[in-house]
């Protein structure tokens, strides 16, 4: 054996250096790894405390009801978006697809009843499927495909609705229970959305392939080279996004008693903000349904809180935009971005 071999052999045989490298994570990582995931929850609790001090009736049943009702569609949209963001992509069309979904529901429920809901959910899922298919098969950036889809489905929505709100009176009962039902005096809509988030979290935590979307977002080539179809996973994420846009549409139609071609459009930013502020990284691979739940609650509590402390609602948009930029800047893993475009 040559000298060089022996020399490296000695270095390798020294267990202290090798073990050290393994045990001590890269600089700065341990702090972030341990504390960062808790920040959103701390922020949420702090927000609730501050607002309660200013407005003691914030924790009343009445305001809880309002909170839960407004969190329902937002949380559903955010959950759908989360699947796509976990893969490292983004679905800019999701709110427009939800709006489109409300139009479909308002048009179909009077004639078809529950069948209309099923059909509308199928259509929004199919839209997500097609988006995912184009992104995965053509290998083009998701933001631009879904930007195109945003225009496409807004346009169709405006077109078939005549650019106006469609009131739903006949057959409203099919969805109306979502708005009216109370469980332990709390609105079923919000509770249902939260239950869905918990179920997703449990499934992702226990299914054999529950972390596959995370893996895709973290290491796409390694996942593909392990024999897992990245195309199918990506399509799955977008299809789920479409499905959840549809579910959000059902919730909105129930709460608003109508459908409209831009009904959910204003939720695009808050929903994306909910995902990223909860701690799901825009680079993909890190995040989950409970984080998204916390993020959605932060957004809703803040909305209530801002008006409680007397901030003009006009500032809301400024706030969403700033939150998105700040949250992304904090959660982004720069080592994963080879070239930022």
């Amino acid at each position: 054996m040559t000298l060089m071999n022996r020399r490296t052999d000695e270095a390798a045989a020294d267990p202290s250096t090798a073990a050290l490298r393994a045990i001590v994570p890269a600089t700065g990582r341990s702090w972030r790894d341990r504390l960062t995931p808790l920040i959103p929850l701390v922020v949420l609790i702090a927000l609730v405390l501050v607002i309660t001090i200013k407005q003691p009736n914030f924790l009343s049943l009445y305001s809880m009801r309002g909170l839960l009702e407004s969190v329902a569609p937002l949380l559903l949209l955010a959950l759908g978006q989360m699947f796509v963001i976990l893969t490292g992509g983004i679905d800019l069309a999701f709110a427009a697809v939800a709006s489109f979904g409300t139009v479909l529901l308002a048009l179909w429920i009077p004639d078809m009843g529950p069948g209309g809901i099923v059909l509308a959910l199928l259509v929004t899922s199919l839209i997500g499927f097609v988006n995912g298919f184009v992104v995965a098969k053509a290998q083009v950036p998701s933001f631009i495909v879904t930007l195109g889809a945003l225009g496409l489905y807004s346009g169709i929505g405006l077109w078939i609705s005549g650019a106006s709100t469609i009131r739903l009176s006949e057959g409203y009962d099919v969805v109306g229970w979502l708005a009216d039902l109370r469980i332990a005096q709390l609105p079923a809509s919000g509770l249902l959305a939260i239950v869905i988030a918990v179920v997703i979290a449990v499934l992702m935590g226990t299914l054999r392939r529950g972390r596959a979307l995370h893996a895709l977002g973290l290491a796409e080539p390694a996942v593909l080279m392990s024999g897992i179809s990245t195309v199918r996973l990506r399509i799955l994420a977008f299809t789920l996004s479409g499905l959840f846009s549809g579910l959000a549409a059902v919730m909105l139609v129930a709460l608003q008693r109508s459908g409209g071609p831009s009904l959910a459009d204003s939720m695009q930013l808050p929903a994306i903000a909910a995902v990223v502020i909860g701690g799901t990284a825009i680079t993909g691979g890190v995040g989950g349904a409970m984080k998204t739940l916390v993020g959605a609650l932060i957004i809703v509590v803040l909305r209530v809180g801002l008006s409680a402390v007397g901030v003009d609602p006009a500032w809301e948009q400024v706030f969403y935009g700033a939150v998105i930029v700040a949250a992304v800047a904090l959660t982004i893993d720069r080592s994963r971005l080879r070239s930022i475009k």
Binding site: A215, L218, A219, P221, A222, M225, S226, G227
Partner: peptide, 22 residues
């Protein structure tokens, strides 16, 4: 290209081991 195509950086050792045959 081990770091790119071999390991899934960000997943645990165990999760990597079960990538192929969960």
């Amino acid at each position: 290209e081990r770091r790119i195509e071999g390991i899934a950086d960000g997943l645990s050792v165990a999760e990597n081991i079960f990538l192929v045959a969960p």
